[in-house]
Design a protein around this nucleic acid. Structure first.
Length: 228
DNA sequence: ATATCGATTATCT
DNA sequence: GATAATCGATATG
């Protein structure tokens, strides 16, 4: 697996906006984790926007607490929380200091560090088998690595202890997002997944037709489609 | 292919 | 004490 993992770091201005814009424009960017054994990288293919005010599904809906304080902080920083006693989820803070808002990373297309990520996910990986496998089998395997918010955190070793509050824009940060010039085509917008309050708002964004998005294939092409 | 269910704990009421 | 921005296993068509 070749790994061309280079690109421009994103800036505070990119994140200092409405989470809906950030969520949409994060599609196609690369999330990168620097490790001693080389970089882990995945292309962002699915996100969800969480708005500060009036969004009852957002952790910030009831105001600032110890857990959600990063979302009230400056833009471009990692908000990592623990959920269901089992999983971590990664968000990036949006909007200026004092205004809550964020974007949840829901799925990545594995780009570099496949073997390391598979190991972190407790998946069996054989280079020989993988390189010989057909296209469909490759996709099926790669989909298990980071297709889901809890899965991508496990693949990247993202935890609250290690990453909460960290800048995702820094040249010194081991966790960052870059723009490598990739342009995704059409974007599909659907309601968010796994929530009950404010469940109808179309705030989930995904690259249309991308096989690495989370969830059943059915719901991923239903409502509004937007191009860019 | 879709539905249902149990696991497991930080956080908030 | 109830809940949760999930996942993986199991059951059923």
């Amino acid at each position: 697996m070749t790994a061309l993992v280079r690109g421009k770091l994103l800036t505070p201005v990119f994140f200092d906006r409405d989470p809906r814009h950030v969520a949409r424009e994060l599609l196609g960017k690369l999330l990168i984790r620097k490790t001693a054994g080389g970089p882990l990288a995945g292309r962002i293919v699915e996100t969800e926007a969480y708005l500060g005010k009036g969004d009852l599904a957002a952790h910030s809906a009831a105001g600032r607490t110890a857990r959600n304080s990063v979302v009230f902080g400056p833009p471009g920083h990692a908000y990592v929380y623990f959920i269901y006693g089992n999983h971590y989820c990664l968000n990036v803070s949006c909007l200026p200091l004092g205004e809550p808002g964020g974007v949840l990373f829901r799925a990545l297309e594995p780009v570099a560090g496949i073997e390391e990520m598979a190991a972190a996910r407790d998946l069996d990986f054989s280079e020989d088998y993988f390189s010989a496998a057909g296209k469909a089998a490759k996709i099926a395997f790669l989909k298990k690595i980071a297709s889901g918010p809890g899965r991508l955190c496990e693949a990247f070793g993202i935890t609250r202890e290690r990453d909460n509050g960290k800048s995702l824009m820094g040249a010194r940060s081991d966790l960052r997002i870059v723009d490598d010039g990739h342009r995704c085509g059409r974007i599909t917008v659907t309601p968010r997944i796994g929530i009950v309050q404010s469940a109808d708002h179309p705030l989930r964004y995904l690259i249309a037709g991308n096989p690495f998005v989370s969830g059943p294939k059915r719901g991923n092409s239903l409502p509004a489609k937007v191009s860019r």
